[in-house]
């Protein structure tokens, strides 16, 4: 198919345009708003409840929140990772190509000519940027509300070690990074789903369903052999980042796994998108 040629400067320009479209969209800000509501709700509930949550009560780490506001971010990230965050990722990645096809803008981008491979790369890059921004919103809002309500102090890690405020800040940022990386594979799956249809909602739903199914499969002990291959396998592995000494092996394993999903579904998306007739 035509138009596939390297064009360094203009690819950057196209990515910038892609991000502008993403960030000018009401839908994107609605999702950021919904994500921001999670740490706010969490912090308010803990702040106004009569007795502080005891160890092991409620979502993970909730009991740490009162010691150090930074933990609001971490708890909110852990809470949003299984479902809420993947939903937003599914919306953005599932809509990447299908949404343009549904609007009819895909044919105009292609005859511009954007180049099919270039457009696919830019679309994935846009979804990846969103996968970084979404947990970053939770992180930053969590920091803001947590430090306002609970202050910033020393924090006790899961290993029992005590770290200072700076350390807590760094750890919670690392957790957000882990969550962002976790979403890269799902974004690739969404991109592939997006090349299969001109109905954006269909691709979004399929992607979200896969995220849930993978987590359900991850719960079944009978499928233990499969678990290391599921893209959701390390999703809740951020706890390793909250121990002393800190272990990065989960982070790197996750990165390798997500890169594998990106390579596989990226190749499928390429094969599909560069050969299909654009008739919408």
């Amino acid at each position: 198919m035509p138009g596939d040629r390297a064009a360094g400067g203009t690819t950057i320009a196209l990515l910038a345009s892609e991000l502008r479209v993403l960030l000018r969209r009401g839908r994107t800000w609605a999702m950021f708003g919904a994500l921001a509501a999670i740490p706010v709700l969490l912090a308010l509930v803990v702040f106004f409840s009569a007795s502080p949550p005891g160890p092991g009560e409620g979502p993970p780490l909730l009991d740490k929140v009162t010691q150090n506001g930074m933990f609001v971010s971490v708890t909110a990230l852990v809470v949003t990772t299984p479902l809420f965050l993947p939903l937003t990722i599914s919306v953005v990645s599932g809509d990447a190509i299908a949404g343009e096809a549904g609007l009819g803008t895909l044919r105009y981008l292609l005859v511009a000519p954007a180049g099919r491979l270039r457009l696919l790369v830019v679309k994935y890059a846009g979804a990846a940027v969103f996968a970084v921004l979404a947990p970053a919103v939770v992180l930053l809002v969590g920091w803001a509300i947590g430090s306002a309500l609970f202050g910033v102090g020393e924090a006790t890690l899961l290993s029992g070690d005590v770290i200072g405020p700076g350390g807590a800040l760094a750890r919670s940022a690392l957790v957000a990074l882990h969550v962002a990386i976790s979403m890269l594979g799902l974004s690739a799956i969404g991109l592939f789903a997006s090349t299969l249809t001109t109905v954006g909602v269909g691709a979004m739903a399929a992607t979200a369903v896969l995220a849930v199914v993978a987590q359900v499969l991850g719960q079944l002990d009978q499928l233990a052999w499969l678990h290391p291959w599921l893209f959701t396998h390390h999703w809740l592995g951020m706890m390793d980042l909250l121990r002393e000494p800190i272990s990065f092996s989960g982070l790197t394993d996750n990165l390798v796994l997500q890169a594998g999903y990106l390579a596989f579904f990226g190749a499928l998306a390429y094969g599909r998108f560069t050969t299909k007739d654009v008739l919408s």
Binding site: T10, S17, R24, G26, Y108, A112, A114
Partner: peptide, 28 residues
């Protein structure tokens, strides 16, 4: 080209829509 009717992003202005498609053009 104008192919099978116009198609634009409804949430962008007319000028922003043109800028978007121009960014996809290697000559733009």
């Amino acid at each position: 080209a104008l192919i099978e009717g116009p198609a634009f992003y409804p949430f962008l202005t007319g000028a922003d829509n043109l800028a978007r498609l121009d960014a996809a053009d290697p000559r733009g």
